[in-house]
């Protein structure tokens, strides 16, 4: 991170599901790798939040729009969308790749018996 970069975003006080911790860790790791600056991240996140707010009543206040923790952390679903957009902007991933990979994981879960590790076939 360059000295002039914006400060890193705060994680929520409590992650409410494992994927929320995963997306936070992924964003931090990709930033640390130098793929984007926090100011770029913040720009995209602001855009996502504005789109979500404009989309209106799809989410309830408990989804985090009201920022109940008061620490600036928004709903982690916004982080997921923001990262998808940011990586696509940089041609690091395409929407088709994401859709295909998500479906591959869903299929892996559907076809793996409980008790076996769920992995993607290489």
């Amino acid at each position: 991170m360059s000295p002039s970069d914006d400060p890193a975003p705060s994680p929520p006080a409590v992650f409410e599901a494992p994927w929320q911790a995963s997306i936070f860790a992924l964003v931090v790791a990709l930033h640390d790798r130098g793929l984007f600056a926090w100011r770029d991240w913040n720009r995209v996140l602001v855009q996502v939040i504005a789109e979500q707010d404009a989309a209106g009543a799809a989410r309830s206040p408990s989804d985090g729009i009201a920022d109940p923790a008061g620490d600036g952390a928004r709903h982690p679903a916004d982080w997921v969308r923001a990262l998808e957009i940011l990586l696509a902007e940089r041609s690091l991933v395409t929407p088709d790749e994401l859709t295909g990979m998500a479906e591959a994981w869903a299929q892996a879960y559907r076809t793996t018996p409980h008790g076996q590790p769920v992995t993607l076939e290489a």
Partner: peptide, 9 residues
């Protein structure tokens, strides 16, 4: 979607 992002990266 998060798993997809993780595994692609």
């Amino acid at each position: 979607r998060v798993k997809a992002l993780e595994s692609l990266m």
